[in-house]
Nucleic acid binder design. Structure first.
Lengths: 330, 330
DNA sequence: CTGAAAGCGCTTACAG
DNA sequence: CTGAAAGCGCTTACAG
């Protein structure tokens, strides 16, 4: 059973292949009777068009790449899930491209994006993204970045209001009576990372607290390192804000191994609001990024950017997800 | 700056396009001087071949689909990571296809696999996979399944020795003095799920224990439900084996919310050995699936199956990863 | 060793 | 409204 080609359908339906093509791609351009007949014949043969041949001919496809550094990071996994759904609704196929944070791999995917005639794409960075790396590809406003970018960057971006997110976390802790709040970084290079960190410092100053930042390692490991220091510290802060949920997981885990209990000994707030956080021990209080919304906006902005050539910047509002890793200061 | 085509390179190099094609695809078929010259000219123009046109012409591509139900499930995320690396090493591009466990979506990807001329593919199921759903596509031994399949299934498979895995967990708990060990299912339909469950029951019987199985809900929720029951139970088992790590996370979290501490009150063993388990509170003891190995074997079997038409079945050995969620029975 | 030609499976001006 | 023709960017027997 060989796959039927357009020519086979045309022969079976007794029309020219251009008519078959139109019946599928521009149905209004063919007489209804003819169209129905052609479509019926095609269906009976199990015919579908070759996306490859279509892409080659029209120089456009419905493949949209999402370029992420690491799919085992639950934030990117949730983002991918949301974007896949959003892309699917609009008739696109999301192609997940994982770079392992390697610039060569990224360039490879951008190249592939062009050779596959992708209409647009989305890139979510983990560390500093150098616009010089992708501007040569000339995607312009057809490539959206999931991060804040430098003010002189002229492509579309979608991000969350990180300053507000950190404020949500900080205010929550202050309201619980905490007067000494530390910050664990653990993400590096992105504007997102810088924004969160700076927001923390500003807030600490504004509240007359001495800022205390731990900034060793990346991800869960950063949390573990911070826990070491916290465990051995006199005048330990009563609360910690982690730059993201994975950092918070590592922190809580290592705190527990050292006999420190969350939230009894230390309150912890994460950032991301991952679904997995609900299954933490304790369930993690976290600044929730509207990931589904980010996915949808990412696709929307990319599509609009491809149409209009205009680069929009969307900043989404975070919410505080209060679960059980924060409690009143003792 | 328009992308150069093969004809542009041919013109610039003063040869026919067939020579350019050979210089790239069958370098031994062209005189060395000519080849070097062509390649140099091509490089100077930033030329690369169109994978689209190549695939259309040769009816083969290097795109290999990995079909998974849910990328936010860390097991599939880790599998995807491993497979991407394995595929990349062999010159293939892994295309991640997420089905959300929907049969229509799966069929769509299998269809795409054919129309993209994928040389082979890999599918990792979450629930029962009905061979009837994909056998019509006629992939034969070019589609490997990451699960044990029914004995009469004739495609290649790679899976872990689940019986042995459960035994590892069980024996570990028995060695710690546990005489009452429960099981939380939380995965459903796959042969993997059935094998783990049955192994537990067999082991309980062999050790003269009354089997106690919790089987409500899926994933983390299954763990939470089990925790409810455990918290309200007289003669609570001192240890629990969870069907996978995500179930274990939910279990430990909900146990904690009810004032039960792991491993002091209950020991918990997971299954998967996710990296994330190391950042659990406490770090999760788990039966480690050799995910990297599974990824590599999956690609290898698929490639060999495509070449030879033979379907191999690989069963990998699990290991016990002893972390901190298990302790001696009180 | 290299070139000319046919063709992979489509689309789309252009005629009629 | 439909057909005939050219062409998207390649590859590969076939000659020479």
């Amino acid at each position: 059973m060989t796959t039927p080609r357009i020519e086979d359908v045309a022969a079976a339906a007794g029309v020219h292949r251009s008519t078959v093509s139109r019946a599928f791609s521009r149905p209004e351009a063919v007489r209804q009777e003819t169209r129905d007949h052609v479509l019926r014949v095609a269906a009976s043969m199990g015919y579908t068009m070759s996306p490859l041949a279509q892409a080659l001919r029209t120089k456009s496809s419905t493949l949209v790449p999402l370029i992420v550094p690491d799919i085992t990071n639950p934030f990117f996994a949730e983002l991918a899930k949301a974007m896949r759904a959003a892309a699917g609704e609009r008739g696109y196929q999301l192609v997940l491209c994982v770079t392992e944070n390697d610039a060569t791999a990224t360039a490879g995917y951008l190249h592939a994006m062009r050779s596959m005639y992708a209409p647009f794409g989305v890139i979510a960075p983990l560390t500093q993204l150098d616009p010089a790396e992708f501007e040569p590809f000339g995607f312009g406003s057809r490539l959206v970045v999931i991060d804040r970018m430098a003010p002189d960057y002229h492509g579309p971006t979608v991000t969350v209001d990180n300053v507000k997110g950190i404020r949500l976390a900080f205010d929550h802790l202050v309201a619980l009576g905490h007067r000494s709040i530390a910050y664990v970084a653990g993400i590096v290079g992105t504007h997102t990372a810088a924004d969160r960190r700076e927001a923390y410092h500003a807030l600490a100053r504004a509240n007359d607290m001495a800022p205390l930042e731990f900034n060793e390692g990346i991800g869960a490991e950063a949390g573990e390192r911070a826990a070491e220091h916290l465990a051995n510290m006199d005048g330990r802060p009563s609360a910690v804000i982690a730059a993201n949920d994975v950092v918070a997981f590592g922190l809580i885990s290592a705190l527990g191994s050292r006999g420190l209990s969350v939230p009894n000994d230390v309150s912890v707030v994460g950032f991301d609001g991952l679904a997995l956080g609900a299954s933490g021990n304790p369930p993690l209080t976290s600044v929730r990024q509207p990931i589904t919304e980010m996915g949808r906006m990412g696709i929307e902005l990319a599509e609009r950017g491809a149409d209009s050539g205009r680069a929009e910047h969307v900043v989404l509002r975070p919410r505080l997800l209060i679960r059980s890793s924060t409690g009143v200061a003792r």
